[in-house]
Amino acid sequence: MTTDLGHPALAATAVRKAYGDHVVLGGIDLDIPTGSVFALLGPNGAGKTTLVQILSTLIRADAGEMRVAGHDVVRDPDAVRAAIGVTGQFSAVDGFLTGEENLLLMADLHHLPRRERRQCATDLLARFDLVDAARKPAVTYSGGMRRRLDLAMTLVGRPRVIFLDEPTTGLDPRSRRTMWEIIRGLVVNEGVTIFLTTQYLDEADQLADRIAVLHQGKLVAQGTAEELKRQVGGGHITLRFTDARGHDYAARTLDVVSRNDEALTLKVSSQGTCGRCAHCWTGSTAPRSPWTNSRSTPPISTTSSSR
């Protein structure tokens, strides 16, 4: 089981997929070390889910070499399936069964011995804070609980590589943070490799060792969060004001790229702006926050919001 230490957990070269004339993935290369978290960042329709479906043996690529946990995805899909766990974008729980029964179903499908299966279900229910709901049908669960159960089911077979397709989309902020804690715990405690997709830069930033940005089927940037922020330093932030006074004050204080007096917006450089924004805010006498922050230009230009 430990033979792939030092080898990448996931390696792919020139992965392509098209539906008719529509190219979904136009040559993807990946190299993800064992025990790391990799985030694939991109907007809806970028091809994130397609790439996850290909790497998790759900659909076939048109071309490309792929190895997951040391096994060839095309030639030996069953070996790959035995080594991975997938939590898709859409809840993959059996709503008619209880949380506990869902976990036992997974244990049976992984052919766990009788005594182990119960223990496994009990442990996971406790770990994912589902003990109280264990005997209730999963249809009655909240969105956050369903995701937790979903991930718990993925863990039953002790996968070495876990795919998480938008694990926090649609969750409230609290459930989202809980999910982050769980994902971090997985890497630290079990040494698994995680491949996650997300639309949120802050999520990738919080969790991932390496981030790749997928845009229209191509990886347009790759690196650590820091490296990426340096690469896309030319981004802008649009500040929208609720009153003219704050707008005018900020326009005089900040390095403004452009201003629109009618819409009460200012476009400022995203580098090193935060400190001055904060100053500007305190300087303003407006009783409530004078602006709301909204994003503009390249998809990851909003990084300078207070961190």
């Binding site: 998790s56 043996t57 759900l58 069953d78 070996a79 399936r81 035995a82 991975i84 997938v86 898709g88 974008q89 859409f90 809840s91 993959a92 729980v93 059996d94 709503g95 499908l109 992984h110 979903d150 089911m153 993925t154 077979g157």
Partner: peptide, 13 residues
């Protein structure tokens, strides 16, 4: 139509 079949398909069963 639910995700459960996708899960079964990615398992070695």
């Amino acid at each position: 139509t639910e995700g459960i079949v996708a899960r079964f398909r990615t398992m070695a069963i």
